[in-house]
Every structure is written in structure tokens, then in C-alpha cells.
Design a protein around this nucleic acid. Structure first.
Lengths: 256, 256
DNA sequence: CTAAAGAACATATCGGCGTTATGCAACAAT
DNA sequence: ATTGTTGCATAACGCCGATATGTTCTTTAG
């Protein structure tokens, strides 16, 4: 009675191919025909395994959030929760810069654009699933409050502010709007400190914690990222083709 | 010797039609065929007047920034520069919510998406033109610094932080990610206060100024928006058709 | 007033897109 | 061995952006 009788390995292989196309050549390369070519199959694979292009994209968006979650998990909880919070921000940005096109689809390809990627649209459930990733940030905000570093009384609200501010900076960065001398790096560092001060921390303490998070970044985030492109990422990206069935000659090669 | 021998009124009419389609039916309605139908002409109008679909979109993006600029101009300069700054934020959001699809194209349709709207892409000049809109915010930040309300020493950096934070909240709002009890309204109000505190203002002063900006909003921004959809906006959106030339029968209806 | 030159446009077409209908080949169950 | 199901290739449909071609109208020159 399993609703999925299809080979999950083939399914994963297609997602891998699609993710690679999106990452390496951008959204305009993400077409059924292109995917079919890469998978050495016909365009039907997309519809047999996903029903529509939009569903494939949704699967990739889910994977994108999972990847972000994996980065968050790598942030240690120390006795300086503000530094932890800043490091969560760095992890968020690192993930976005590592997968810029996917990030764009996650937050810009949905209800906003509507047109991009074959008019696919996220469902409310998809967005709820995305918001769930915030729970790590909420938990960290709670610790900041408990430590007396943040003045506000609503950890979830603080988390939303951190999220939207960092997200805004990143979209501007990806859109090419942040150029020298006010480049993304500089704005981001300043933003982190201001965010902490805005939440209630003192200027000195915030600057210190942000600096500390910068030190921790390479060890906890940048090094040994969050798995490979696919997720599990250890299936060679090729469709098994069941029994190695060959594309029967049918009318032979009489195309000319 | 004017490089444009084409009728500028027709050009404006096409932009109007395109802007209306984008606003009312979203990006997927913005096609050469649809525009041609609305203008009672052939798809060639787009190529005769703009060369390509992407150029038409770029023109609309420019118009979008001009409209934002017009909203900014309506913010009075008072002796409470922090309230002025908060009101600039409200004006920014008001513009984005009044033209959500256009806003999405301005910041999400360019280098980010790549695919949406026929793979058009903003040039560096376009982005620079967009960034120029920030000058009002920079000037306001300068006044905040001069009044001793902000502690930071770089007005332009502060302006960038205000921009990216508000922009981030708005993209999340348009993307449907801000839902009760942490809806966009609540997050925005909190964000404004935190932004001012993060820039150096005290909690009490910031809260007061943000509240003051909320009072000024309806009078200075929301009422009598910033002109109509087109810009000048007083040409009836119809292509003059020069002499009312009829689509000649040519071969009559002998297609079979 | 006429005739050449050029601008604006409609038509038809090309290649590519997402998607679907059809039918065949391989498997599973009897 | 027969039958039913499943997975997929092929071909097609209706869109899309873009372009080549040729006709008509406007402008200009004589």
C-alpha cells in the first residue's frame, strides 16, 4: 500500500541533478529537458517521479532548509550566548552564499516571484517548515535573555528581528546592491553589532561577542560544511534505469 | 537627430499596460503576447519600442525606484530626526506593499532569480540608480547623528543597516513568512525601535519617536500616495495606432 | 505633385518551454 | 504461459520570447 512504488534512488538522483544544475548554471538551466538529458532519460522522469516541475523545486527547497538546519546544529552553545547568536547569523549567511540560487528560490521564488521556475509556489506548510528552522535562533535568544544580555522580553520576537535583518542584508548582497566601500562584509559586521545592541546588549559587550563569533566561525562553520549537495550525498548521480534497458530502436535511426 | 523617432506616448502607454498587468495579475501575465493584445497591436510593439522584454522590465524597475523616491520626498524634516527616519521606513514599506510584484522584480528579479521574467538582469548602473534612492536615508541619518540621537559615526553605514533590515522584513512579509502572532505589523514596529536603539538611541527616546512616526504616517504617506501607476499617469492607456490602421486582410481568410 | 526613402507594423515562423496522451517493453502474479 | 501493472520513450499541444520578411504609411526631395 506504499504510495511510492518508484525507486527512491532514482528520485534522489534526479534531485541531485536538479540541484547541481541550479547551483552551477542557475535557474534557467533547471528545465525538464535539461534534467532528462543529464539523467540520460526522457522528460517524463520529472512527471513520473514528481508529478510536475514545481514539486521537484519544492523538494529542493525542503532540502535547502534542511541544509541550513545542519549549519545551525554546528554552532556550539557556549557561556557567551550573544556570540552564539552572532555565529548563527554567520552560519545563515554562509549557507546562503554557498547556495545562492537555492536561497533565492527559497525566499524569492515563492509567493514573491510567482513566475520564476514555472510558476511554482510554496504552500503554507512549506513556509511553516521553513520557519521551524528558526527554533534554534529562538532558543539562543532565550539564553541571551536569561544571561541578562538582552533586554527585550520576547525571545521569539527577537529571533524574528535577527532573521529578517540578516535575511535582508543577504538578499541585497546576492542582488548586487552592496558595493564598496559599503560592501556586504562591512555591512554585515556592523549589522551584527547593531542587532545585539538593539536587542539590549551594551556596545562593548556586543562588539566583543561579535568579534568572538568571528574567531569561532572558521572552526565551527566554514570548515567541513554541511554534507554534500544532495543531503545524504553518496549516491552517484545517475539513473539506474532498472535493468539497463536501452532506448529501443523503434524506427531505427531514420531521422534524416 | 533624436535617437528616438518612436512616439513616446505609445512607449508610455505600453509601460502602463505592462505595469498594470504586473500589478494586477502578477509576473506570469507579463508576456509579449498579452501586452500586444492589451495594446491592440502585435507582439512587435515590444521589440520596436524596447528591443526586448528585458528592457521593458528594466524601464519598469526604474519607474519603481522613482515611485519610492516620491514617497521619500513626502516625509517632512522635523526636529525629531529619529521619527523622520522611522517614517522613511514606513514609507519604504508602504511603497513595497502597494506594488508588491514590482518590488519583487526590483530586488528579486535581477541577479538573484535570473529566470523570472525571461531571464532579464539588472545592470550595475541600474543598481547604482536604485542605491541612489538611499541618499534621503543617509541625509536623515546625518541629522540623527547631529542631534546626538545616534552614536555611530558613519551615516551612510547606518543608512545601509536601516535599508537592509527593513528590506529583509518586507521580503519575508511578501513571501508569506510572517504570520500571527509574529505578523509583519508587529515585527515591523519592534524592528523600528530596535534599529534606532542599535544605532545609538535610548530605548525610551526611540519608542517615542517611532510612536510619533506612526501618528505622522497617515498624513504624510498613506494619504494621497505617490501619483498613479504610470508616473505622469494621465494618458489613457491605449496605443494611438497612428492613423487607426486596420489589420489589412492581406490574403483574406484563405488559409486552407 | 510625384517619387524615392525609411519608419512602423502584421504575419508567419523558429526554437524552447512545461505538460500530456499514447503505446510499447519489462516485470510480477497467477 | 497468460495477464495486469508499471515505467518510460515518443510525439504532440499550447504556450513563451524572439526574428525574418514584406507591406503599408509617413516623410522628405526634387
Amino acid at each position: 500500500m506504499s504510495p511510492r512504488r518508484l525507486d527512491p534512488r532514482t528520485r534522489a538522483a534526479i534531485i541531485d541533478i536538479a540541484a547541481r544544475l541550479l547551483a552551477e548554471e542557475g535557474p534557467q538551466a533547471l528545465t525538464t529537458r535539461r534534467i532528462a538529458t543529464e539523467a540520460d532519460a526522457s522528460t517524463m522522469v520529472v512527471y513520473t517521479y514528481f508529478g510536475a516541475m514545481s514539486e521537484l523545486v519544492r523538494q529542493m527547497v525542503h532540502e535547502g532548509f534542511a541544509r541550513l538546519q545542519r549549519y545551525f546544529t554546528q554552532v556550539r552553545q557556549t557561556d557567551d550566548p550573544v556570540a552564539d547568536m552572532a555565529l548563527l547569523g554567520r552560519a545563515y549567511r554562509h549557507n546562503a552564499l554557498a547556495n545562492p540560487h537555492l536561497y533565492a528560490v527559497m525566499f524569492g521564488g515563492g509567493a514573491l516571484g510567482g513566475s520564476s521556475l514555472g510558476g511554482f509556489a510554496l504552500t503554507d506548510d512549506d513556509r511553516q517548515h521553513g520557519r521551524y528552522t528558526l527554533s534554534d535562533v529562538v532558543e539562543c535568544a532565550r539564553r541571551c535573555l536569561a544571561a541578562g544580555r538582552f533586554r527585550a522580553d520576547d525571545a521569539e520576537l527577537v529571533a524574528h528581528q535577527m532573521w529578517s535583518a540578516v535575511h535582508g542584508l543577504i538578499t541585497l548582497e546576492l542582488g548586487g546592491y552592496l558595493i564598496a566601500p559599503y560592501d556586504a562584509e562591512r555591512c554585515f559586521e556592523a549589522q551584527l553589532v547593531s542587532l545585539m545592541v538593539g536587542a539590549g546588549d551594551t556596545g562593548e559587550a556586543a562588539a566583543g561577542s561579535v568579534a568572538e563569533s568571528r574567531r569561532r566561525f572558521s572552526a565551527e562553520i566554514s570548515a567541513a560544511g554541511a554534507a554534500g549537495p544532495g543531503g545524504g550525498a553518496h549516491h552517484s548521480a545517475s539513473v539506474p534505469s532498472r535493468t539497463g534497458r536501452r532506448p529501443r530502436p523503434r524506427k531505427a535511426a531514420s531521422a534524416e
